[in-house]
Amino acid sequence: MNELLYQFAEWLYATPWSRAIEESFYLYNWIETTHVLTVMLSLGMLIFIDLRMLGWVMPQVSAVKIAQRLNTAMMIGFVIMFITGILLFYAKPTYTIQSIWFRIKMVLLLGAFVNALLFHKRMMSSAGSWDMEPKAPAHLRLGAALSLGLWAGVVTTGRLIAYDWFHCYRDLPAAMAWAAGCVAD
């Protein structure tokens, strides 16, 4: 599996656009800047929705209304964030695919996505009964807290990708080398 992923990364690395993005000081850095700026939009809106569920912001306003009204802006932010994220990966595929932080980030992203789907389904199925309460029911508050925790993890591991403390060219314990996706040269 790791071998296959690395081969795919090597193939991406060899494509002209991958080289062009990484070698362009302004293009690469502006993609990264846009990726960070969209944190303000996507996570900013998401945090406000989660905080409302926890009863910490606008408790007098319908929780479902806040979730629905902020959804479009949040999704626009996420789309731009994912596009720029894919471009950043595309620019440095062989380094990133062997980053243990990137791999943890992907697992946390998947967790956040599944949590968001479950949260939305549960919120809509029970909306009428608690919508105007200052706090959402316990199971939704748990979902909101989990969402905040998972996204804090995504941001942290995303930031840590830049650090090579546990990269494959270092002397790593076998389990960590496997988790980072290290393959023999």
């Binding site: 303000m40 939009l41 996570l43 900013g44 998401l46 945090i47 406000f48 942290t156």
Partner: peptide, 17 residues
């Protein structure tokens, strides 16, 4: 760095909402 970024997300949310 991470706390700075997470705070930026909260600040962004507050400003943009």
């Amino acid at each position: 760095q991470s706390v700075h970024l997470i705070s930026l997300a909260v600040l962004g949310g507050a400003v943009l909402v």
